[in-house]
Design a protein around this nucleic acid. Sequence first.
DNA 1: GATGAATGAGGCTTCATTCAT
DNA 2: TATGAATGAAGCCTCATTCAT
Lengths: 228, 228, 228, 228
Amino acid sequence: MTSSCPICEIAATVRAKRERRKEARPGELLAAALELFVEKGFAATRVEEVAKRAGVSKGTLFLYFSSKEELFKAVVRENISGRFDEWNAQFAHFEGSSADMLRYGIQVWWERIGATKAAGITKLMLSEARNFPELTSFYQHEVIQPGTDLIQRVLQRGVDRGEFRPIDIRYGAYTLLAPMLFLAMASYSALNPQLDPKQYIAVQVETILYGLSSQPAGSSPTQEPRTS
Amino acid sequence: MTSSCPICEIAATVRAKRERRKEARPGELLAAALELFVEKGFAATRVEEVAKRAGVSKGTLFLYFSSKEELFKAVVRENISGRFDEWNAQFAHFEGSSADMLRYGIQVWWERIGATKAAGITKLMLSEARNFPELTSFYQHEVIQPGTDLIQRVLQRGVDRGEFRPIDIRYGAYTLLAPMLFLAMASYSALNPQLDPKQYIAVQVETILYGLSSQPAGSSPTQEPRTS
Amino acid sequence: MTSSCPICEIAATVRAKRERRKEARPGELLAAALELFVEKGFAATRVEEVAKRAGVSKGTLFLYFSSKEELFKAVVRENISGRFDEWNAQFAHFEGSSADMLRYGIQVWWERIGATKAAGITKLMLSEARNFPELTSFYQHEVIQPGTDLIQRVLQRGVDRGEFRPIDIRYGAYTLLAPMLFLAMASYSALNPQLDPKQYIAVQVETILYGLSSQPAGSSPTQEPRTS
Amino acid sequence: MTSSCPICEIAATVRAKRERRKEARPGELLAAALELFVEKGFAATRVEEVAKRAGVSKGTLFLYFSSKEELFKAVVRENISGRFDEWNAQFAHFEGSSADMLRYGIQVWWERIGATKAAGITKLMLSEARNFPELTSFYQHEVIQPGTDLIQRVLQRGVDRGEFRPIDIRYGAYTLLAPMLFLAMASYSALNPQLDPKQYIAVQVETILYGLSSQPAGSSPTQEPRTS
DNA sequence: GATGAATGAGGCTTCATTCAT
DNA sequence: TATGAATGAAGCCTCATTCAT
């Protein structure tokens, strides 16, 4: 600080700045990578563009992530798998009908994943998994498995409480997953059907809940699916 | 036909053989291309490997298809869009309930598309559309539009005849499309959930028809979804 | 002729036709090759297009010319070197002033070469010689050498007869050659200056003859340059 | 400047070195490209060989020039069109006879273009223009047009001052251009006549100036060659 | 830590030439 | 003779990764 060498002071400033940014860097890179992976897919995204969008050079990217694949894994952890704990906890304490629980779960999924760029990751993985085996098994463990478990627990709860018909849990999970994942994929595809997601979800969910319900004739869809 | 001239016969044989060869080539290439596109995606498929799998050299492929993109278009025409006329005709004369019509349509789709490699094309297009704009608009015109039209006509029929609830036709189409397309995508992804497709379809279809039906209590799922 | 086998008759007809065309074929191919070589250059001309323009298949071309280079040589022989004998003979008996002799020679060159596609060969050789050494030495022997000799003989005659200043014959030849060859090249280039060739030649020739003349004031342009 | 901080000096050195390297690359590549284009023509030159001759890899070349065509344009700018401003300025202030002006201009052209590899560019363009339309229009604008304008201005000056016969300026320009361009082409062709350029130029120029002069022998040609 | 110049394997496409028919 | 399907070497260009500074 009292150094008479101006270089030293500059160096100190630079060092401070670097350290501050050192922690920011990966975040900026992850954000840029998420955007681009989702926009173009894994293979078609060029690391140089990721770096540029994050405001750093290509070399810097490799300083934080040893390869393009590691960068991708970090993106997945940041945006998806890192959040399962929180969700699991929320569901563990849910009180109310299982139909509401599903409605709530799907709404949360939509807000945190479906409506965000993270949805594009799902599309990307379904698309390119076969070409990148290591990414695939990573994603299996970190996302697919926990996610499927979560849904199955909810369905099982509904069946156990007599709210849902005694459907095959494993296949039933896909009755819910399929339209959501399809939405995720369609939204991030150029073939995007330009549906209004909220309305799409409402129609799907109510139709499915109606189909799942143990006493459909009486109660349920007297109220029309609310398409807001 | 009963010519006594041996030359004629030989000539005919030669001609036949040559023509068979010449006409077989594109077919062999299209088959190889379908397999590889579906396996790896458009960008990740190497034309040289397509050629090798068809048993010819790289150069030969370009004799029949002027570019990789043209090869892809030909694959789509051969496996999907070339068949819509036939389907449209079949549906035009269908007699029976609209629910049966949907069941039948989905079964046909499964047999001709879903269970074949053509399903992989769907996955591929959803995935890579954004990176290949020309392919995208081609696919829109040749596949998406005709396919959506077809489903919407069936739903409209069901609503008009009082068999289905008066749902929004446009979104309702996706109630059917989504699980099918999801199956197509999942099947051709390394994230394949290893579901039994027939059982998956049975569960989805019956759940959805139940959800669509105008008189759910009476007709539909008295018979359990046939999971074969 | 009285054969009862219709095939035999057809075969005979075919054979006759073939023999008739057999002699025509090379001519058609040479004409097509000249056009295309001149239009696009040697390397950029594709043998397949030559064949197509001649109305035959690629294979047939190689039946008559063992390679692209041989085809080119045949074109040169047909259009240029095959004509030197005739010209040499004409010049041997020319009577009149050397200026007229040059005027006449240039006019003949223009009509037989300069104004025809053969001029393009000159351009082509100057351009691509270095990439095709064998063609180069062929052209040296068959065209450059005889042509230069011819001009030098005329100049020498003019000097010997006191009509021209005693210039260096070798360099003087280029005083005449340069503008003509330049015209040939420019005409067959996309950079074509759109000059009227006759007018261009008139200006060049008279300027040069004037420059060459031993008594410019007196002799030279008393007779009008015939620019028609 | 006289900083006692050794870091600064090192940093300066490093920076200088890097910049020198970085700035040298394009120059080295342009030099290699000029050589090879001139030697083999545009189409026949392999970018990989350009890179190798510049001592870098294929990829590096594309770091500096986005395509082979852009590389060529850069070569033209560097060697030809970038110099017109300077020449135009020189000519604007020339004092002396127009004949001397032409002699001087031709000498300068010879030293700066004709005797250098840049002359080969001219040959190349005349040769390959037709196969590369974009290069052609580029060359038209950047070279042909400014060059022709320059010559015509000098000729017009001579005519205006009564030094030259009232020749048609447009065609007269080619009286000068043709032998020079021919020399450029011949020099860079394998058909190179092995003339001594200085002597060739001397003969051409004096012959032409003699032909242009308004009072060559004293009287001059009373009647003009009619060039219309 | 940060940079960005450099690399080189690998992809799509062209085309002279061969050869079975 | 005539065909044209087939070949494969070679060319331009891209991009993940390395490394000297």
